[in-house]
Design a binder for these strands. Structure first.
Lengths: 211, 211
DNA sequence: TTTCTGGCCGAACGAACGGTCGGTCGAGGA
DNA sequence: TCCTCGACCGACCGTTCGTTCGGCCAGAAA
């Protein structure tokens, strides 16, 4: 029973072919989904394990059968968000064309990931660094942001951008613009399909461009 | 566990014989400042009253001499932030000129307030709505955002803005751009004095405007 | 059938929480 | 000198926290 606590819990929601476990809870993946939802509405620290188990329809102790603890839950969620974020950098379009074209592609991809993985990215953007897990997530975010900053610098150096743009400032404002979407975007609302391109336009020609 | 007061242990007075001279904590205002700082680094829920009193240099019970409780502390901080925010709407420049000019003035003023009241605004932007106090703050923010949305709509109707701009979306992105400043801005760093105008430019001509 | 096992549960643990209480202390006014 | 009063403190309260433990139960394996 005593698991080595060194390694975090289950890495991924493993593919589960035609398995028939007719049990109430839908497995670790579904529990994670429920937990992240609660974390996002109440905040991580304000959410108790009892809140989580109530939302999942099982008892507190049952929750510990699937996850080593509250922080393991957070870790699993943050890993998913970080993986999604970095996948925006790995896309082919992020490596072809001029710096400005690549930047456009990355901005767009980041918005798409944010929309697809909304709850997980939301959680990631709210970590404060209280635990080792949170500090790890913060450090991954910094790495991502540094990459974007580097690309903005390339676009400036290539003369593709209006003079006087500070790459560090532009990257921060760009990140802020994109990340703020989690505060109001909800799937299925009108305007969802055009949002990525709208954000790209806002970043490159302005949120409120003059006529 | 009742210990007789006449116990011969008497390790009590030896600790602070000469210390007992005028130990000011700086008053309620200074305590609020300290508390908001702790709230922002750790998060409100993750900050205990003992954390606060340790940071302030007094005991937990002394803290209750100045504030009714943890939530009263939060309330005082949020009121200061909300007052600052709305002062950006009350400035004379927010009521003169075309809609786009007024919008420019408000954006700029909002950035100035955010920089001046950084810790308080930071706290306001992280409120989740767990208590009545937090819900009040959320509602004030919504009122403010609605006002900005209305003004963007006016600018669009006046034909001052490129066609195809959705006022609701623009207002949300605008707010996101401005509010994200609290994530990285720290007073006294280079670029501080040009930041308000840089943000205005980013909103109206783009964060990464083409050459 | 019996055994094993994964999912689940009720009860309880020690620790930490926000908050209360009955005071002590020192400066200032009468 | 005595008294008041605001700032401060140590000890403690009841509650809730994350976590643990022993055991129940149904289906798969033997």
């Amino acid at each position: 029973m005593s698991e080595p606590a060194s390694s975090a819990v289950s890495a991924l929601p493993a593919a589960d072919p035609a398995r028939r476990s007719r049990r109430p809870s839908g497995g670790a993946g579904s529990l994670l989904e429920v937990a992240v939802g609660e974390f996002n509405t109440r905040g991580y620290d304000a959410t108790s394990m009892e809140d989580l188990s109530r939302a999942a329809g099982i008892t507190k102790s049952s929750f510990y059968h699937h996850f080593a603890g509250k922080e393991a839950l957070l870790r699993a969620a943050l890993e998913r968000a970080v993986d999604g974020l970095f996948s925006a950098l790995d896309a082919p379009a992020a490596h072809t064309g001029t710096p400005a074209e690549r930047l456009r592609a990355i901005v767009r991809a980041q918005v798409v990931v944010l929309m697809a993985e909304l709850p997980y990215v939301t959680l990631l953007l709210r970590v404060r660094g209280n635990t080792e897990t949170e500090r790890w997530a913060l450090e991954r975010r910094r790495t991502f942001d540094a990459e974007v900053t580097r690309l903005v610098g390339e676009a400036v150096d290539a003369g593709e951008v209006r003079a006087g743009v500070d790459p560090a400032l532009a990257a921060k404002l760009l990140g802020g613009l994109i990340n703020s979407i989690v505060e109001w975007y909800r799937p299925g609302r009108p305007g969802t399909d055009t949002l990525p391109d709208d954000v790209v336009a806002a970043a490159f020609v302005g949120i409120i461009p003059a006529r």
